[in-house]
Amino acid sequence: MNATKSVEELRKIARQVRIETLKSIYLAGSGHPGGSLSITDILVALYFGGYANVDPQNPYKPDRDRVVLSKGHAAPAFYAVLALKGFFDKELLYTLRKLGSPLQGHVSRKHTPGVEASTGSLGQGLSVSLGMALKRRLDDLDYRVYCLMSDGELQEGMTWEAAMTAKHFKVNRLIAVIDNNNIQLDDFVTKVNSGIYPIEEKFQACGWHTITIDGHDFEQILKALDEAVKVSEEKPVAIRAITVKGKGVSYMENTPAWHGKAPDREKFIEAMRELGVSDEEIEAFLNKYDK
């Protein structure tokens, strides 16, 4: 396990991840800020709170924990976490979505160290995670599989095919975290297809242990992960993290329109200021990269 950081330190890292996420999306001119910001605290707790057992120097060592980003469009936040963790140079973040960049618009195992499964087509991650958990048992290795999902992908049938199959195969060490920001692409989840609710009961019916938390409260996230690590020795665990889409940038928060577009220069500066970046730093960044 990695060294554990204090909640205060985790908050600082999360702020940094939000800043880098928005910088990369701004420079790319496209991308998905809303769902990247909502899952940031979960990612930071996983990678810097002592859970994801990964080694940036040896990204594919056989007994590493598998983190599958099923909601592949949250790539900018995931890349920022991987960069801060030391998987690759932070400068690469500013090539996001550009021709020839190893940082593809949706995460790709072919391109980026630290990525376990190529995603972008929603609703496939839980099945792939299940396969990885089955492989663990075959190989008799000591790792866990974390699957990071969105609420929108609970609408995909494949998600539930995986959920029920996990029970049948008595899979353990499989932990799913659902970023429940209640917004999808067109509108609020409750408006488009509210049938995903209640979430906990569905997973329970499939034989999963469930935990419900505020996905921006580090104390709750860490506690939930502790519990999940323990319980997942026996059965798969689903954590429903209630989150705010666009968390940390007021004008993006809880607004469907900020699902999949980049801020313009003015809006970008506004976001940076809110995240506590000084005007000098913003200017230096823009002068260097925004040509």
Binding site: Q155, L185, D186, N193
Partner: peptide, 26 residues
């Protein structure tokens, strides 16, 4: 869940009773 991109939302706005946005489940 892509009606704002495919532009079928324009139909949905005028004829909500004949428009079915089923979500992310193709």
């Amino acid at each position: 869940d892509l009606s704002t991109s495919t532009k079928t939302a324009m139909f949905g706005k005028e004829f909500p009773e004949r428009f079915f946005n089923v979500g992310i489940d193709e």
